[in-house]
Amino acid sequence: METLRDAFDFSDFSKAERIGLGLFTIFLLVFPWLGAGSFVKAVMIQFLLFSLFGMGWNTIGGYGGQVELGKAQYVGIGAYTVALMMVWWKIPFWVSMPVGVLIAIGYSFMIGYPLFRLKGHYFAIATICTSLVLQDIFINWKLVGAAKGIELPIHDHPDFLFMQFKSDVYYFYFIMALFYAGLFYMNWFRKSKLGYQLRMIKEDEDAAESLGIDARWCKIKAYSIASAFVAVGGGFMAVYNLYIDPYSVMDLDLSIKIALMAMLGGAGSMWGPIIGAAFLIPLDRFLGSWLGGQKGLIGVDFMIYAAMIMVVSAYQPRGIWGIIEQFRRKGA
């Protein structure tokens, strides 16, 4: 009961934040009826998806302060589980997605146990390595389609069990539901014992240990929560794109993007990942479609993107939300 109340209780946020969340929710609910084009709708779906990824990363990376750069492998696990179970055994999404999440959790414990013996740069690079190894295996593994990837069979009629719809609206509402599930979970998480303990580990790991916190075990738990989040998103990617390959769901760039978005928005805060995604995803997409399509300008969109990463890292590593918080504390 207590838990449920914590998840839906936003009362410790400021009035402005609560009103903002309310307006945002209303906007999302009516968005499909605003007559946006299919491109804008796709961008919106991407935004919600990456917010979900970012929220997951935020548990271990933001609250726990661990530089985790290997989330793509769990996107891949989620996506491949859904795709393969559908292609091989015709198992509906609603079964395969939870299975994918369970596999991701199991795998994350397996990897996390040795991984969290490491700290600092060693840890960061090791997370990249684990993800690259899995990607390499999938690129070469003939049984799962190797580098060519997997195409999901397209059904003739919309099928709720397999999450196949003609219109993007359904996908939009579905990812929106997942987004809010994630949001409520995070609202609970930040107030939970684990949330407090992780923040202490980020502040001062030695002091945390002296307060009876098993730092390594806490990190492993947070890591698997993060993995479960992105595996859900991965499952969604499979049914939404109807095609996956190791490059689209397991790439290093994807891992980086997830972490970057949370950091740009403000790591370790409730709204950070959402703000980061709201900022970067449209930028990424619009730059891509505007510049990427023009002849002779290939790569310019990414250069602008990269330049922004550098500027943010150098001048405001606490992210957009960090700036807002700073002003608020000064004003108060």
Partner: peptide, 24 residues
């Protein structure tokens, strides 16, 4: 001046920048 994560992302940004500059 920043935390380690910012340092990692900073040089990562440089990596992307140089890569796509070369591609351009």
């Amino acid at each position: 001046r920043g935390p380690m994560i910012a340092q990692l992302f900073g040089t990562f940004g440089l990596m992307l920048f140089l890569r796509y500059l070369a591609q351009f």
